[in-house]
């Protein structure tokens, strides 16, 4: 049975090693994401989030987007997680009445998420079906830089102003007067 499936996949031009790696990383990511939204310890939630974001970076490499994967590691695991840990550290006190991490109506989230996943899954299966990603060679970084300094130059400059405004705004909001 497995051999037959493997033969069919190989005949379709699907790389089996990549599929196995994808499955392992995907399982770890889903497990870690469930831990992020269900654990009762905030610091543990932040550390599980690191696992999810690292898994996303690994999936980028599987999809041939290496520069994006490295940027993901630098920005998220390097910078954003430090910001989250500082946020946890600065706001960690006994919260009001109890230490509850969940809203009263938290169970409402389960049907909403299940319904959303049903809809998205149906659309994805209908759209992609058994389409195979043909070209998975790594993208040369030169193509990205050409895109940024060519057709996407104006959005790129706009993004620099967004980051500048956000940095100044964060300082102004968080400053003690």
């Amino acid at each position: 049975m497995t051999v037959t499936v493997a033969a069919v996949l190989a005949a379709d031009g699907i790389n089996i090693a990549k599929n196995v790696g994808f499955g392992i990383i995907a399982f770890g990511m889903v497990f870690a994401a469930l831990c992020v939204v269900s654990t009762r310890n905030i610091v543990h939630a932040a550390l599980w989030l690191v696992v999810v974001l690292g898994g996303v970076a690994a999936q980028y490499i599987l999809a041939g987007a290496e520069f994006v994967a490295v940027s993901q590691v630098l920005v998220y695991i390097g910078a954003v997680m430090v910001l989250f840990l500082f946020g946890i550290m600065l706001t960690r006190a006994k919260i009001g009445s109890d230490e509850g991490m969940f809203n009263d109506g938290w169970a409402l989230g389960i049907p909403v998420a299940a319904l959303l996943f049903g809809l998205l899954g149906w659309v994805i299966i209908d759209y992609a079906g058994d389409d195979v990603i043909a070209n998975q060679t790594p993208t040369p970084t030169v193509m990205l830089s050409d895109a940024y300094l060519g057709p996407f130059l104006i959005p790129f400059l706009a993004l620099t102003f967004v980051l500048l405004a956000a940095a100044i705004g964060a300082i102004v909001i968080a400053r003690k007067d």
């Binding site: 699907i14 790389n15 990549k18 599929n19 994808f22 995907a26 990511m29 889903v30 994401a33 469930l34 992020v36 939204v37 999810v52 999936q59 599987l62 999809a63 809203n103 938290w106 409402l108 989230g109 389960i110 909403v112 998420a113 299940a114 959303l116 996943f117 998205l120 899954g121 994805i124 299966i125 759209y127 992609a128 079906g129 058994d130 389409d131 195979v132 990603i133 998975q136």
Partner: peptide, 22 residues
């Protein structure tokens, strides 16, 4: 690889995130 692999994985992560926000 199948295109649906990536799309279904991202749908799962998205729905877990929506549950967390709620």
């Amino acid at each position: 690889m199948l295109a649906a692999n990536f799309l279904l994985l991202s749908a799962v992560i998205f729905c877990i995130g929506v549950f967390g926000v709620i």
